[in-house]
């Protein structure tokens, strides 16, 4: 599903690499917590897995595709099979909540009727069925987080990446979001969630990838 072999990621030459010597594998349909202090490399690892950057060295395989050697034109199709919940939501301000959620389906070329039905269903799933026509700016941080989650899962991705998806939520909302992510895992999606919260990890036990200064401290 996801395999990293001796991965190094440097943003600029001469600087310390953001990730170094990283090797691990994630099974299909697994749920993994990604932990580490700020600057440990969590976001860099997620960027790597969502194909926003390519490894400087090493071999990266995502959903059966060797990303380190793949041609650029092969990546959009692969990205469409990956759902992402960004830490800063990254909702498009000029689109309605419904259109934001429908975006991955539109990009995938789904038919208008099906696309709308799926996006509406997903918004109801995250408890935002009543805010479909609003703009993101009219929503609270927690609601925007849930819209971002709905957008990430609407296309039923094979790999779901979430960068601090509970950072703007109170405890009950955070638990609800993690429950939704686990539901996705039960449906067969491989889920990787970066978090700072030990409480969540305690309440939702799962394998942990622990990063420290760009290196893998532990996996298990």
């Amino acid at each position: 599903m996801v395999r990293l072999e001796d991965i190094t990621l440097s943003y600029r030459r001469g600087e310390n690499p953001a990730l170094a010597g990283l090797s691990f594998a994630l099974e299909a349909g697994s749920f993994t917590w990604l932990m580490g202090a700020s600057g440990a490399g969590k976001s860099s690892l997620l960027k790597l897995l969502q194909l926003s950057v390519r490894p400087t060295a090493g071999r990266l395989t995502v959903l059966g595709t060797a990303v380190h050697t793949a041609r650029r034109r092969a990546l959009p199709g692969l990205r469409r099979r990956i759902g992402i919940v960004f830490q800063d939501f990254r909702l498009l301000p000029h689109l309605s909540v419904l259109e934001n959620v429908a975006l991955p389906l539109r990009i995938a070329g789904r038919r208008e009727v099906q696309l709308r039905a799926d996006a509406e269903e997903m918004l109801r799933w995250v408890g935002l069925g009543h805010r479909m026509e609003d703009r993101p700016e009219a929503l609270s941080g927690g609601e925007q987080q849930r819209v971002a989650l709905a957008r990430a899962v609407v296309a039923r991705p094979a790999l779901l990446l979430a960068d601090e998806p509970t950072s703007h939520l109170d405890e009950p909302q955070a638990r609800r979001v993690v429950s939704l992510l686990q539901e996705m895992q039960r449906l067969g999606t491989t889920v990787v969630v970066a978090t700072h919260s030990p409480n969540l990890i305690q309440d939702f036990p799962a394998p942990i990838l622990q990063l420290h200064q760009g290196r893998l401290l532990s996996h298990g």
């Binding site: 959009p76 692969l78 990205r79 469409r80 992402i84 498009l92 991955p104 990009i107």
Partner: peptide
């Protein structure tokens, strides 16, 4: 964002 969601060039 569109690029990261899989939109082609």
């Amino acid at each position: 964002i569109l690029h990261e969601l899989g939109a082609t060039d």
